[in-house]
C-alpha cells in the first residue's frame, strides 16, 4: 500500500468534486451540531436534576386552625396525631433520609423573610400558617410511597412534592431535546443520502480509472480506499465544525448569557462538551463511512 499514491488520489477526488464535498461538509456540520445540541440539553437536564433533586423535599402540611380540607374536619392537628405521624415517618427509614419539623412559629419567620418586601407579610398571623414535616427522601422518585401513606389522614392537610413542579420544567426541556434530536436524525438521514449520492457520482466520474484498476488486478481495498477516505475526510471536517459550534454555544450562550442571568441553578460544564465531541466525530465519520462503503460495494464491484 502506497500512502502517497492514495493521499494524492483523495486530494484529487475532493478537489474535482468540490461542490459535492462542500455539500457533504455543510450537511454533516449542521446535522451534527443539532445532534450535539440535543446531547448538550440532555446533559443540562441531568445536571439540573442532580442539582435540584438533592434539594427537593416532600412537605407534609398539618392542619391549622381554619383549614378546610375534609381531613382537617377535626380542627387543628392534635399533639397525639403529630407524634403518630412523626413515628410513622421514622418507620419509613431508610427511604426517608431526613425529617425536619417546622413549627408554626418557624413557618411564620420564614414567611416573613420570603415576603419581607410585600404587604402580604403584615396580613398573615402565626396561627394561620400550617406546621409541617419536611421530609428528604433517599430516592426522590419514591415520592408515591410517602404520598399514599400520609395524604388524606386526619390531621394532615396536604402532601406536597416539590419534585413534581420541577418535573414539569424538565419535561419542557426534554421536549426541546426531543425536537432537536428528531431534526438531527432527519438531517443525519439526509447526510447519509447525500454521501451515498456523492459516492455514486464520484465512482461514475472515475469509472475509467477504477475499471483499469480492476483489470490490472488492484485489490478492492486499493480501489475503494480513496473514495472511503474522501467521505471520511469531508465528514471529519463537518464534524470538527460541529464541535466548534458546540464549543461556541457553551462559551458564549451558556457561560456568558444564560449562566449570569440564571444564577439559581447550575449549568453543564466543559466535561459534557468534552464528552460529546468524540461522539459527534465518531458518528459523523462512521455514518458517512458506512454510507460510502455500502454505495461503493454496489458501484465498484469486482
Amino acid at each position: 500500500m502506497r500512502a502517497e499514491f492514495v493521499a494524492s488520489e483523495v486530494g484529487n477526488g475532493l478537489r474535482r468534486n468540490l461542490t459535492m464535498t462542500l455539500a457533504v461538509i455543510i450537511t454533516v456540520a449542521v446535522s451534527l451540531s443539532l445532534f450535539g445540541v440535543s446531547l448538550l440539553v440532555r446533559a443540562q437536564v441531568d445536571t439540573m436534576k442532580d442539582f435540584w433533586y438533592d434539594k427537593v423535599e416532600v412537605s407534609i402540611f398539618l392542619c391549622a386552625k381554619g383549614s378546610d380540607t375534609p381531613s382537617c374536619a377535626g380542627g387543628a392537628v392534635t399533639a397525639g396525631q403529630r407524634d403518630q405521624i412523626e413515628a410513622d415517618l421514622e418507620s419509613l427509614r431508610p427511604l426517608v433520609q431526613d425529617i425536619y419539623y417546622e413549627s408554626q412559629a418557624e413557618a411564620f419567620v420564614r414567611f416573613q423573610e420570603q415576603f419581607s418586601s410585600s404587604p402580604i407579610a403584615d396580613s398573615v398571623n402565626e396561627s394561620a400558617l400550617p406546621e409541617s414535616f419536611r421530609v428528604k427522601l433517599a430516592d426522590p422518585t419514591q415520592y408515591d410511597v410517602v404520598a399514599s401513606a400520609f395524604s388524606g389522614r386526619p390531621g394532615i392537610e396536604q402532601v406536597n412534592d416539590q419534585r413534581q413542579v420541577l418535573d414539569k420544567f424538565f419535561q419542557l426541556l426534554g421536549g426541546l431535546q426531543a425536537i432537536a434530536l428528531i431534526i438531527a436524525v432527519v438531517m443525519l438521514v439526509v447526510t447519509v443520502l447525500l454521501v451515498a449520492n456523492t459516492m455514486r457520482v464520484a465512482a461514475f466520474s472515475r469509472r475509467r480509472e477504477t475499471s483499469i484498476m480492476r483489470l490490472v488486478g488492484a485489490s478492492n481495498l486499493y480501489i475503494q480506499l480513496p473514495f472511503l477516505l474522501e467521505a471520511a475526510v469531508s465528514a471529519g471536517i463537518g464534524a470538527i465544525l460541529a464541535v466548534g459550534g458546540l464549543v461556541l454555544a457553551k462559551s458564549v450562550i451558556i457561560d456568558q448569557v444564560l449562566a449570569p442571568s440564571f444564577q439559581f441553578t447550575s449549568f453543564v460544564g466543559w466535561d459534557a462538551v468534552v464528552g460529546i465531541a468524540p461522539i459527534l466525530i465518531l458518528v459523523g465519520i462512521g455514518l458517512s463511512g458506512i454510507a460510502a462503503f455500502l454505495t461503493l460495494r454496489k458501484y465498484l464491484r469486482v
Binding site: R2, I212, V216, G217, A218, Y222
Partner: peptide, 24 residues
Amino acid sequence: FRLLPNKSVFENVAFALEVIGKPK
C-alpha cells in the same frame, strides 16, 4: 485502448503498478 487522457504515457503505464502497490 482505455488510456487515462489526463496522464502521460509514462503515468499511464506506471498507474498499473501503482495501484497494485509496487514501490516507486
